Amino acid sequence: MHVIYGGTFDPVHHGHLRLAIELCDRLEVDHVSLVPCHIPPHRGDTGASASQRLQLLELAVRGEPRLHIDDRELRRAGASYTADTLRQLRQELGPDHPLVMVVGTDAFAGFDRWREWESIPELAHIVVVRRPGPALNPEGIPARLLTKRRVEDVASLRNGAAGCVLELDPPLLDISATGIRERIAAGRSPRYLVPDSVWEQIRQQGLYGACPEGNF
């Protein structure tokens, strides 16, 4: 089973990394592929360039064999669309290999606004990670899709290549990339929210408004 976990990782933090490890354990896979997006179609510009975000991600996963980086979206020109990535992976994996994409409930709530969203369940299984916040609108398309395709266990994902939706409720660290960027811009330390190697590189490059000469 091939599992991908995408996002801007702007910057990558311990919440991302801890969730990825939890996914390895819960889904019983050897590794999870982290897929940083190039140009996110549903938000503004990132606070760091694609190459900078990739460099931070590489530093963050160094020494952890269960976390792999798949940079295909950074190598592809234009906005990053999930359907394109899944279609490419499906060609590589073949028609019968289980492919899983991971998304939080906050992002899944707007699933019907994604480009070619109808094709996504035909290309991959979807794992929805429950996050704090409002529940899905029961009358909305995402909630109806969840009801229609819901499965209750990981074994169901292994029994087919695509088409199922599994909800997971792993322990989450209450850390946000937005909060980290705001903290850095305000001159406050994000240490222990991000790996030390990531924070050091952010300081060296002056990313997110960091002062390279700061003492924290």
Score class of each variant (00 low, 15 high):
A177H: 07
S176K: 06
I202G: 05
E22H: 09
Q205I: 12
L173M: 08
D71G: 07
E58K: 14
H16Y: 04
D96W: 08
R26P: 02
I202S: 06
R72I: 07
H14A: 01
R62V: 12
L54W: 03
R144Q: 15
V127M: 10
G187L: 09
R149S: 03
L74M: 08
R150W: 00
D169S: 12
V12C: 10
Y5A: 06
I39L: 15
P40F: 10
R131C: 05
M1D: 08
L168P: 03
A155I: 13
G7N: 08
R43L: 07
L89T: 10
G104H: 10
L67K: 03
H13V: 00
L23P: 07
P41N: 04
G15N: 05
G104C: 03
V12L: 05
H42C: 02
I184C: 06
G110H: 13
Y5D: 02
L17Q: 01
Y192F: 14
P98G: 05
A155N: 14
G140L: 00
W117G: 06
Q52S: 15
E28F: 12
H125C: 10
H13M: 02
P212Q: 02
I120R: 00
F9Y: 12
A77N: 13
I21P: 01
G209Y: 10
R191N: 07
R76M: 03
L145H: 07
Y192K: 00
V61M: 05
R150E: 13
V102P: 04
L54H: 10
H125G: 10
H125A: 12
R188S: 12
G78A: 02
G214R: 14
G187V: 10
L157P: 00
D106R: 01
G44C: 07
P132N: 03
R43Y: 08
A20H: 00
R149P: 05
E182V: 12
Q205H: 15
L166S: 05
D112I: 01
L123E: 09
E200V: 14
I141N: 06
L74I: 09
A143N: 02
H2S: 12
V32H: 04
A109N: 05
D25N: 14
R149Y: 13
D196M: 03
I69L: 08
R149D: 08
P134F: 12
I4V: 13
P171G: 09
A143W: 05
L193V: 06
Y81C: 06
P195I: 08
H68R: 15
P142Q: 00
A143G: 02
D174R: 06
P41C: 01
M1N: 09
I120N: 02
F216N: 06
V3T: 10
S176C: 02
E116T: 07
V154S: 02
V3Y: 09
A60N: 01
K148R: 15
V61L: 09
A161F: 13
G209K: 10
L145P: 08
V198W: 00
M101N: 03
W117V: 09
P36Y: 08
R158P: 04
K148P: 00
W114V: 07
I180D: 01
E118A: 12
D30T: 15
P195V: 02
P142G: 06
S189Y: 05
H16G: 01
N137I: 03
P132F: 11
L193N: 04
R43Q: 13
A177S: 13
I126E: 00
Y81V: 00
E92I: 12
E122G: 13
G63D: 11
I4S: 07
H42N: 06
H31Y: 14
I141P: 10
G179W: 05
V29N: 03
I39T: 14
E122N: 14
